[in-house]
Each structure stands twice: as structure tokens, then as C-alpha cells.
């Protein structure tokens, strides 16, 4: 679906369809935007995992025989992923849900799990502030300048402009130029006369 906030890329691995369904239901009911892929064996899972994936939910039984080894391999391939293991074992670097957790604890743990972005080492809240350079680019976009013009005016390369614009859109979750202009006006980054250009 277009126009929505950025979805987390979630891999769910378990043999049991009911188990995977349960995890999907929780994610869905918590209103987490997730792009989910399912796996039924650890081999299939390890082969597919990569750094695009942001969150992994694993059933402990799936890697019980060679657990630690598998997790080490997993972190090698996808070191920026957040991992949640469902099971009673202790797995360093992973969050876990144990059989003694009640319904509310499970919900809380899921919420905390998805609020974290390991790749950036920060909570989402702090990530959404625009940098000074991004603010500069935002002002230029709102004044109606094209990428090439912005590059010339700020003495940066056109690729840098494109990267800044991508980050601005991700942070503010505003995609259209018209929307960015309204944002800039509301926040007094530009004056109404500027936007008429």
C-alpha cells in the first residue's frame, strides 16, 4: 500500500502454522505496519535472511539442537536485526518471551520490540528530528526549486540532495512537495512569499 508509514520488515520462523498465525495476529492487532515473511525451517530461514529485514521472531524449538550456533550465524548475516525468541532459553543479544509471560506481558514485549531500531541504536522518537542540512534542503524544496537547482544553490552534489530528500520524507512521513511546503510554512521555515516562486 502506498502512502503509508514505512513498514517494518518482519521474518517469522516456526514449523507450526498456528504459531505463525498467533504472532501475525498480535502484530496486526497492535497496529504495527509490518511486511511479513514466513519460514518453516531454520535452513530456509538462514538462507533468506539479510539486512533488509528489521525484526525477526523465532520459535525456540526450531533451533533447539544447535541453538547458539544458529544465532551466531544469524547475527553474522543480519547484524542490524532485532531478534525476539519465543521460548524459555537465554539468548544473548535477543529479547525473549517465556512460557510464564501472561497476555499483557506478551503485548508489552511485542510493543517494546517493535519500538526499537537497532540499526540506528536509537528510539524512533529521537530519529525524527531533521538535521540542519536537511532543514536547508527542505526550505529549498518548499520554495519550489528542483534537485539540480538545490545542488547548485547549496554547493552540494545532486546525489546528496536526493539522499537528504529521501531522509526528510522518511522522517516526516510526508511525500509530496505540496505537503512539505505546508510543513515548512506551518513551522515558519519559509515565508508565504517564498512558496509562491
Amino acid at each position: 500500500m502506498q502512502g503509508k508509514q514505512k513498514a517494518s520488515k518482519v521474518y517469522i520462523a516456526s514449523k507450526q502454522v498456528l504459531w505463525r498465525f498467533g504472532v501475525k495476529s498480535v502484530i496486526h492487532d497492535l497496529g504495527i505496519m509490518a511486511d511479513i515473511e514466513e519460514f518453516t525451517s531454520i535452513e530456509e530461514f538462514i538462507n533468506s535472511v539479510n539486512n533488509d529485514c528489521t525484526h525477526i521472531v523465532l520459535e525456540e524449538n526450531l533451533f533447539k539442537t544447535n541453538g547458539k550456533l544458529m544465532l551466531d550465524r544469524l547475527f553474522q548475516v543480519a547484524h542490524t536485526c532485532n531478534v525476539l525468541v519465543i521460548g524459555d532459553g537465554d539468548y544473548p543479544g535477543c529479547r525473549s518471551i517465556s512460557s510464564s509471560d501472561g497476555f499483557n506481558e506478551v503485548l508489552n514485549k511485542f510493543q517494546e520490540f517493535f519500538a526499537e531500531d537497532k540499526a540506528n541504536g536509537e528510539r524512533y522518537d529521537d530519529l525524527n528530528k531533521l538535521s540542519d542540512r536537511e532543514l536547508e534542503v527542505l526550505k529549498e524544496v518548499s520554495k519550489g526549486y528542483a534537485n539540480k537547482e538545490i545542488a547548485d544553490r547549496l554547493h552540494i552534489s545532486i546525489n546528496t540532495v536526493i539522499t537528504h530528500r529521501k531522509n526528510i520524507t522518511e522522517k516526516l512521513e510526508i511525500k509530496t512537495i505540496a505537503g512539505l511546503t505546508v510543513y515548512a510554512l506551518i513551522n515558519n521555515l519559509i515565508s508565504p512569499e517564498d512558496s509562491q516562486q
Binding site: Q2, K4, E173, K175, A178, G179, V182
Partner: peptide, 21 residues
């Protein structure tokens, strides 16, 4: 056009929710 129209409507909602005093 659908993609662009959807993005614009989403922006409108989001401007109100997040940034509108």
C-alpha cells in the same frame, strides 16, 4: 495517478495528526 493521489491524501492526514497545532 492512483499512487500520487493516495500519497497526497496521506500527507494531508499526517500534517494534521503530527504537525498541526
Amino acid at each position: 495517478d492512483h499512487g500520487y493521489l493516495e500519497e497526497t491524501l496521506f500527507d494531508l492526514k499526517n500534517l494534521i495528526i503530527k504537525f498541526f497545532p
